[in-house]
Amino acid sequence: MKILLVEDDRLLAQEIANALRAENFAVDIAMNGEDGQHLGDTEPYDVAILDLGLPKIPGAQVLRAWRKNGRQLPVLILTARDGWTDKVDGFKAGADDYLTKPFRIEELVMRLRALVRRASGHAAPRLVCGPLSFEAQTGVFELDGLPLKLTALEWRVLECLIMRKDAVVERSVLTDKVYEGDAGTDSNSLEVIVARLRRKLGKAMIETERGRGYKLTAGPP
Rank of each mutant, 00 (worst) to 15 (best):
R113L: 05
V128L: 09
L132G: 00
A124C: 04
L127M: 03
L115K: 01
W84I: 14
R113F: 01
L132V: 01
L132A: 00
D97V: 04
W84P: 06
V128R: 13
P131R: 01
A119P: 04
H122K: 01
K92W: 11
R111Y: 09
A136I: 04
L132D: 00
G94T: 05
A123L: 13
L76V: 08
A80T: 14
Y98G: 10
T79S: 15
G121N: 05
G139V: 00
A93E: 03
V88H: 00
V116R: 00
V75S: 14
K101Y: 11
R118F: 12
A80H: 09
L99I: 11
G83P: 00
E107C: 06
T85K: 15
G83I: 03
T138F: 10
E106P: 05
G121H: 07
I105A: 05
R126E: 15
K87N: 03
F91S: 02
D89Y: 02
V128T: 12
R113N: 06
F134M: 09
T100M: 10
A123I: 08
Q137M: 13
L99H: 06
R113D: 02
F134L: 13
L78C: 05
L108V: 06
G139C: 07
R113A: 08
F103D: 10
E107G: 04
E107V: 13
V128C: 08
M110D: 07
A123F: 07
F103T: 09
L127G: 02
A136Q: 02
L76M: 13
R126A: 12
D89C: 03
D82F: 06
T100P: 04
L99R: 01
R104N: 12
C129L: 01
S133M: 10
R104W: 06
T100K: 06
V116T: 12
D96Q: 11
D82M: 12
E135G: 08
P131N: 02
V109Q: 09
D96N: 15
Y98T: 08
A95R: 00
I77N: 06
L115F: 09
Q137K: 13
T138D: 12
Y98P: 11
L132F: 02
A93P: 05
R111C: 14
L115M: 14
H122W: 12
R113E: 04
A95P: 03
T138W: 08
D97P: 07
L112V: 07
L108A: 09
D86M: 12
A93F: 07
Q137A: 15
P125F: 10
R111G: 04
A124F: 04
D97F: 05
C129D: 02
L112S: 07
M110H: 11
E106S: 15
